[in-house]
């Protein structure tokens, strides 16, 4: 048993992190969040992601892909979540090999979620699922335009979509924890950094605990590819991301309630991703039935 990242996996993680840091930094994020016309999908960035193998990661080399597995895809999506990278990343990744141009990032693919939500409908070239009758929603996530299709009988969700979404949540949770810690070291009140107060320390410690438990669950689910374990990992990752962003907001105090701080962007995306996965209740019932 060697349940740790291999050297290749570390390199991949580092590579994606550097790519995103160079190509989608904080300034780019804020431009999107603060832009007058709402978020725009950066087609050039999309193609660069395609060229880097982000979408073709799991396609066999014989089909022009990178030939890697779920664990590597999870690491890449964790980085996307950490950087708060916008766009229908999961749907396009899943379409690689099935929809022409998805693997290279030339075609942007979105999908209708079982909840009826359709992210990035106007920007996408291809929609998977039935988006007939979808109407625009004033999206709570400033970085994700949303449509909502009429409710349909719930369909089984692709476990890989659930897993990659969980990986994004994991990255977001880790980022929120780091952001809170950085702020708690810099911000002073009562003559000391607020991070020296135990009340703040304990908030941060619990953020890390939730993140590391979710990490073990998400990585293990990537290794086993067991659908039930994937859904359980999704539950823990949703919690780590949402609670993490909430606690980060709390550590930021008044600044956390402003548009200017990035905290709310993580929280709102985490809310959206939670909605896209199976509900907590359904997962709990599934795991109760397995007892």
């Amino acid at each position: 048993m060697d349940f740790q990242l291999t050297e290749d996996q570390r390199d991949l993680q580092q590579g994606v992190r550097e790519l995103l840091a160079g190509r989608f930094d904080r300034e780019a994020l804020r431009d999107l969040a603060d832009g007058p016309e709402g978020p725009v999908l950066d087609r050039e960035l999309w193609r660069e992601l395609g060229a880097a193998g982000f979408f073709a990661l799991r396609l066999p080399e014989s089909e022009g892909g990178v030939g890697l597995g779920l664990p590597e895809a999870v690491l890449a999506f964790e980085e996307a979540g950490r950087a708060l990278l916008p766009g229908p990343l999961v749907a396009t990744h899943l379409a690689a090999g099935a929809v022409e141009g998805a693997a290279t990032g030339d075609t942007v693919v979105t999908a209708v979620d079982s909840s009826g939500l359709v992210p990035w409908l106007d920007a996408a070239d291809v929609v998977r699922g039935d988006a007939a009758g979808a109407v625009p929603v004033r999206s709570a996530d400033p970085l994700t335009p949303l449509h909502r299709a009429p409710a349909r009988p719930p369909a089984a969700q692709d476990p890989v979509a659930v897993l990659l979404t969980a990986a994004e949540q994991l990255g977001s949770a880790a980022r929120s924890c780091e952001t809170a810690v950085t702020y708690a070291r810099e911000r002073s009140q009562f003559g000391q950094p607020i991070g020296a107060f135990q009340a703040v320390k304990h908030l941060c410690a619990q953020m890390l605990v939730r993140t590391e438990l979710a990490r073990a669950a998400v990585y293990a689910a990537a290794v086993t590819a067991d659908p039930a374990e994937i859904r359980a990992a999704g539950l823990l990752a949703d919690e780590a991301a949402v609670r993490g962003a909430r606690d980060c907001l709390q550590v930021y105090g008044g600044m956390g309630f402003t548009w200017e701080a990035d905290v709310h962007l993580h929280l709102k995306r985490a809310w959206l991703r939670s909605e896209l996965g199976p509900s907590a209740g359904a997962v709990e019932e599934e795991w109760a039935a397995a007892l």
Partner: peptide, 12 residues
């Protein structure tokens, strides 16, 4: 929690 905050997260 103090240990996690101070030794892992590096809070003062």
């Amino acid at each position: 929690q103090n240990i996690v905050a101070e030794r892992i997260l590096g809070l003062p």
